[in-house]
Every structure is written in structure tokens, then in C-alpha cells.
Design a protein around this nucleic acid. Structure first.
Lengths: 192, 192, 192, 192
DNA sequence: GATGAATGAGCGTTCATTCAT
DNA sequence: AATGAATGAACGCTCATTCAT
């Protein structure tokens, strides 16, 4: 990588980092582009060399972070041995919950704008996300559900888990995440 | 009600209506207070006699509309006869889904800011919402779940239904709501 | 006029005056709205209560000033006695030339954006401008030209006079206005 | 011409062409230097190797194009035979009008900034433009006008023609150019 | 209670210009 | 000679909020 290329990468990265820090601490609404560039230590115009507007950075951050989490979780899950699919899935979900428990601000940021569409996009572009679908299909191979229905069940489990995480971790409603987990896991067991 | 009081009520109502119309059609972000007062046909200063700011109206609208929907649904459900609790619950949920299907813009508006906290608040203040909890507790009376756990299950069913409605009706992801319904109902059956 | 109305008029007038002064001295391109409001002694937002943007004030200034000049000139001309139409027309034109000679900056400002369309607009709205057309038609009543052709001749005389004024007074090209006048007048005599 | 010099010429030409295209289609105000270089396919810095700023290219374009038109018109006129000076002059003017009728965008671009000064400059530098003055002086040799007055008459005819072209072709005011032509030609006949 | 003119901080965005490569 | 990433002053414009009437 040339010196110029390296410098560009550094600027872009510092903008990402600054935006992420401000979005999570001050909120998206309260973060101005001038705040981001000030924190990143670059000129205002530089921002527009890399991003269209505030929501452009946000979208890219959400996609990156979401993919990162799922990627780590699936990698970790695949490195372990399980008796059955149920155990594997619950381990995977538990890993994500524990991760988000430690990254409350990240959870707050990504949940509101994380949609099934984003996940589907990541699924196409990233090998690791693809593996989640693979794991899920494998787990359901003995059932009489077709591929589309399996996807719908996965969608519901993800949405349910996401909702529970957001409400319990961020809002502490209706209960603490640790108190909620057994019920959630029980529910997921019933679903699959 | 005196003439003055009636006039006040009219102004407040016109502000509510104008705000609701603009929020649903133009979006919250793109609606300014000046837009609301122009549409409502009142002076700018008048807005501040009734509301703190834009988000104050929004919160009140969400609370009102949410309560209204749930209230209608529970009233309708109570006017019918059912063989068992499962049938009753699914009828109740189906009614809400069908309602939101017809009111896509409303769904879009309330979902993003509808939290368990709002529902809990409505539950304390409105008789009809209270009945939903009553119906649910009644349905679980034979199980060995305590009151808190029952509430958690209800919470999950509501969150799951809300997520499915938002994704399928507003975003059409991962499938049309009518294609998703059987899976959702099946899942709810498994949960209870 | 109420106090509020008077105050509004004052603000608008001060914006007009400030804009005119800056446009003529610094040029349109080099005048920012912040300059105008600073000079006018009002807040930035106040500008937008009265005008759409910089070019909105400009258009209105051009229309006002143009109408004003023509209005004064026709009034003055009508107060004098003439042997024939030719004398009357040349007096009218001479009056305008002398006026613009004393108001070089105004000439510079209005010429570039003064079009026949603006004059036609003023002709419909202002009684005095209308009289110019009347005077012209009266002068041509013995010719065999129809109304439309008379208008075309008037148009050419105005354009020619305007061009000569701008070039000779503002740019001093190809000669001083006083040296050019005889040729211009001679030409106009030939035209009518 | 060396390869390097050829390359330089190519770059400069592509900048001219790009600027001309953008000025005529998007307008001068709405064309940024970044637009020009993008269209020309050169780097931003390269622009400054050839031009001072946006108005530098503009001035050069106006001078080039104006000279080009006049040059073609005089060449064409000189290749024809005429009974008298009047016929020759009107042919010359008509040629220019027809040319501008087909090049509305060019007319729009050059008119606003085309001054007698530009023509005088071209007259000194370009042989063909010089011939126009020659033709004119030749045509007036029997009158008792001195050289300076002849120039003034020429100036007025050019300004009048220019005004009529701009208003009738670009703005369609006060009439279509073809409807205006007879009156214009008649007027010019009267002037000379 | 109701008004709406006035405010001005603050926003996103542009773009001519520079200069190390 | 050519590049194009970086700059940052400057801009137009918005809009929540105030307050004299």
C-alpha cells in the first residue's frame, strides 16, 4: 500500500471511529458532522470525500458491526462440539447475548436500524453469515419444512432475540436479561 | 363545557390531527412545528401552549393510538365466544394484525417508538388494556408459571407479533404478512 | 397603520436599502445574505420572512427602480409642451439618459437583468408606464403601422437607448455618452 | 509539434470543450471547476496550469466563439456579389442571425458578457474582424461622416442586432425573431 | 388565551485552491 | 507536467423558541 493510500485509510478509519463513538455516547440525533470531523481531526470537507451524509456512515457502521458480531459468534460456535442442533443454536444465541450485554451502546445503536434486509445483505456478501443459514438448514433437515419456511423460523428467532436483548439490556424491561434468558431459551426450544 | 373550553379542545385536537397526518405522510424528521401549526390553522405560539415540543405530541399520539387499537381489539375479542384460551388469543392477535395491515402508516409511526414501557403505562391507566393481562393470566391459570413469568411470555408474544407486523407489512421482509401468519400462529401456539 | 405593521415595513425597507447599497457597490456576486442583514441591522432569519433568496430582492429592486425612473420621466415629459411627437420622445429619452448619467451604479445594476419582460410586467401594473405606450401609439397614429409593429419599434428604441447608456456611461465605450447622444438621437429620428 | 506539446494541447482543448458544454447546458453559475475537470477527464490541479479561474476560461471561450462567428460571416459575405453596400451589410447581419438561431445556447452564453470592448480587441488581433470595419468604412465613404462617427454607427447597429437576437431568440420577446427581422432590417436601412 | 414577527445559533454542504507526490 | 486528496472558509438556509401585542 502506498503512502497516499495508507493516509487515506487512516482518515477514513478515524472518521468511522469518531462517528461510532459519538453516535453511541451522544446519540445519532445529537451528533453533527462538525462534531465527527472535530473528533476525527480532519477538515469538514474530508468527510464528504468518504461519506454522503450522516446516515451513510451510520449505515456502514451498522453493517460492519453487525457482520462482525455474527461472524465472531459463528466462528466460536463452529469451534465447539455439540450433542445436537438445539445445543448448538442456543450456544450461538447465548454468545451473542453475552456480547451485547457487554456492549450496551452498540446494541442501542444497531437495534433501531437493524432490519432483516441488512442481514440478508450481509448473508450474501459475507461467508460467515452464510454459514448461519447453513447451520440452520442442517438442523432442520429432518423436519418437513421447506427452505423458505426454515428461513421464516430463523427470522422469527432472530427478531425475538433482538427484541428481548434490546428491551432487557437497554431498557431493563420487563426484566433483567439474565432473568429473561431461561424463558427466551425455553421459547426457542419450543419453536424449533 | 364552556365555549372557551370547547375552543381550546378544538385547537388541541386540530394540532393532534395535523401532527398525525404529517408524521405519517412526511415522516417525523421532515415535519417541522411550523408545518403542524400551518396545517392546524393556528399560530405558532399556540403550539407551545399545549405541547413541549415535537416529540411531546409524538409520544402522546403513540400512546393514544396504541391504546385505541388494543382497546378495540380486546372489546371485539370479548364480544365473541371461544372454545379455549388459544383460540381467544389468536383471534385477538389476528384482529390487531388485520387492523395494522389496513393502517400501514400508523404501524410505521408507532412501531419504532413503541416499547414495553408504553404498554405498561397504558396498562395502569386504561381499563381495557388491563383486561388483556387479565385474559392472559386466566389462560395460564393451570400452568405452573408464576405471575411474573406469565408477563414475560406475554411480553415475548407481543414483541414477536410487533416485529413480524413491522417487517412483513412495512418492509415486506422476509415475506408477505399473509404468508407469514401461519408460521407466526404456529409459533405462538408452541409458546403457550 | 398599526405599530406592528409599521415595524414590519421598516424592516423590509432596511433590507431593500441594504441590498441595493451592497449590490451597487460590491456587486451582486460578492454580496452575501449575511452582508445584507448585517447592514440592515436585522437577524438572518428575518431576510427569509420577506424574500425567497438573493435574486428575489434583486428582481424586486430592479422592477421598483426601473418603474420609478420611467414613472418620473413620463411625469416630467407630460408636464411640458412640445411641437411634435419627435420632440416629446427625445425629451423623454434625454431625461432618462441624464438620470442614469447621475446614477451610474443603478444603471450597472439594472441593465444586465432588465428585460423586455420586466417592462411588459411594469406596463400592466403601473399606470405611468402604460402612458408611455399611449404616448407612443399616439405619435404613430398617422403611420400605417399596426399596434404590434409600433410596439416592436418602441422595443428597439428602448433596447438601443439602453445599450448605448450602458456602454457609454458604464464602460465608456465606444465614446463618452455626451459625444454619443447626437448620433443616438439622429438614429432615433430616422427610426420614427 | 512534439508529443509532449501535442498532449498539452489535447488537455487544454478538452478543458475548453468541457467548459463550453457545461456553461451552455448548466449555466455558468451552476458549473464548478470540479465539473469541468471531471468532464474533461483531467485532474483538478491541471485546470490551474492552463486557466486562472472559471471566468478566465469563460472570457476566452467568448472571445473565440465571437471571433469565429464574425469570421465565418465576413468570409461568406465576401464570397458573394452585391449591388450595393446596403445589400452586403444586411446579408452579413442576416447570416449572423441565422447562425445564432441555430445556436441558441451559444447566444445565451456570449450575449451577457459580450461587450464592444471584446469586439474592439478582436478587431485588433484578427484580420477577418478588421475587414468588417473596412467594409463599413467603404460603404460610408460617400457620406460626410468622419471615421469616428462611422464607428459609432457600426456600434449601434451591432448593439441593436445583438439586443434583438438575444430578446427574440432566447426570450422570444417581444416577438419571434422571424417576425422581428423585417422591422430590424427596415430600421438598419434607415440608420445607414 | 392567542398571535405571528423576529430571532440567531447552528446545520449541511460546496468548492476554489493548495501542494506533496 | 500532472495528479487528486485535503483543506476550511464561506455559504444559504432552517427552525425551535420567545415575547410584545
Amino acid at each position: 500500500m502506498s503512502k497516499v493510500q495508507k493516509n487515506k485509510k487512516e482518515k477514513e478509519d478515524s472518521l468511522y471511529t469518531a462517528a461510532y463513538d459519538l453516535f453511541t455516547t451522544k446519540g445519532i440525533h445529537n451528533t453533527a458532522i462538525s462534531d465527527i470531523v472535530k473528533k476525527a481531526g480532519v477538515a469538514k470537507g474530508t468527510f464528504y470525500l468518504y461519506f454522503k451524509d450522516k446516515y451513510d456512515v451510520l449505515d456502514k457502521i451498522i453493517l460492519n458491526k453487525s457482520t462482525e458480531i455474527l461472524s465472531i459468534a459463528i466462528k466460536k460456535t463452529n469451534s465447539e462440539e455439540f450433542l445436537n442442533f438445539e445445543g448448538k443454536l442456543l450456544y450461538f444465541i447465548d454468545y451473542i447475548i453475552e456480547y451485547l450485554k457487554e456492549n450496551k451502546l452498540l446494541l442501542k445503536l444497531i437495534y433501531k436500524d437493524l432490519s432483516w434486509g441488512v442481514i440478508k445483505k450481509a448473508y450474501k456478501d459475507y461467508k460467515e453469515i452464510n454459514e448461519i443459514f447453513g447451520m440452520f438448514e442442517e438442523g432442520f433437515k429432518d423436519s418437513n419444512l421447506d427452505k423458505e419456511d426454515i428461513e421464516k423460523v430463523l427470522f422469527m428467532i432472530i427478531e425475538l432475540t433482538g427484541s428481548v436483548c434490546y428491551n432487557c439490556i437497554v431498557l431493563n424491561e420487563p426484566a433483567d436479561i439474565d432473568k429473561m434468558k431461561p424463558i427466551l431459551f425455553n421459547t426457542i426450544k419450543k419453536i424449533i
